[in-house]
């Protein structure tokens, strides 16, 4: 079922467009994946939805170049607005949006800077990876700490065995991960620069 859904998404998701501007390799992505049910739920949850994408480029001269970008979107429930931060090779940026549609529009138009490009050589192959995570690393760590603290306070109650504390920490440490909501990858052979 998940496989079918992914296949469906892939078919709807347009290929990323690679751009070259002032020796920068830019990447523009279709925002269709933001309409995916699990992604929508995450965007409205109040947690920091993290969109990670990465590009690996093989040049005809045999060299490999890598770059990437991260976008953090958190819905501020009190103020009812979306706080968006993103990091790419050009630096750290942020912006606020009132609605999800505004984000989608912004995302579809946004060119994310992947890496500096000084080579004369042409691109032979490019691999683009996209991953949507439901919460940030910071939120993950905070949840782990809270859980460990809560369990240990429960373990400290009279009649409970304290010897399980280390086992609990081990289980928390190995179990609380950041499972991705959706994953995409595109293999681009001899991609052409877009406009």
């Amino acid at each position: 079922m998940t496989l079918l859904l992914l296949l469906g998404l892939i078919s709807f998701q347009n290929e990323p467009v690679m751009l070259s501007q002032e020796n920068q390799c830019l990447l523009r992505l279709d925002s269709t994946f933001l309409d995916e049910k699990s992604v929508l739920k995450s965007l409205k949850s109040g947690l920091t939805t993290t969109i990670e994408f990465q590009i690996i480029v093989n040049l005809t001269n045999g060299k490999t170049l890598q770059g990437g970008s991260k976008i953090f979107i958190r819905y501020e429930l009190w103020d009812e607005k979306y706080l968006v931060e993103w990091v790419d090779s050009m630096g750290h940026h942020h912006s606020d949006f009132s609605t999800l549609n505004e984000i989608k529009t912004w995302f579809a138009d946004q060119n994310f800077s992947m890496f500096s490009f000084h080579e004369k050589s042409t691109i032979k192959h490019a691999l683009v990876l996209l991953k949507v995570l439901p919460f940030s690393q910071h939120e993950q760590q905070q949840a782990k700490k809270w859980m460990s603290r809560t369990i240990s306070s429960q373990q400290n109650k009279p009649g409970n065995n304290q010897s399980n504390r280390q086992v609990m920490d081990m289980i928390i440490g190995t179990s609380v991960k950041r499972p991705s909501l959706v994953d995409f990858s595109w293999d681009l052979d001899h991609p052409k620069w877009g406009s």
Binding site: Q142, A143, I171, S175
Partner: peptide, 18 residues
């Protein structure tokens, strides 16, 4: 507090498997 619980909710399967 809600965030912590939501994070755990995402990891329910992982926790059960572990």
């Amino acid at each position: 507090l809600k965030s912590h619980l939501q994070v755990l909710e995402h990891n329910q399967k992982n926790l059960q498997n572990t």
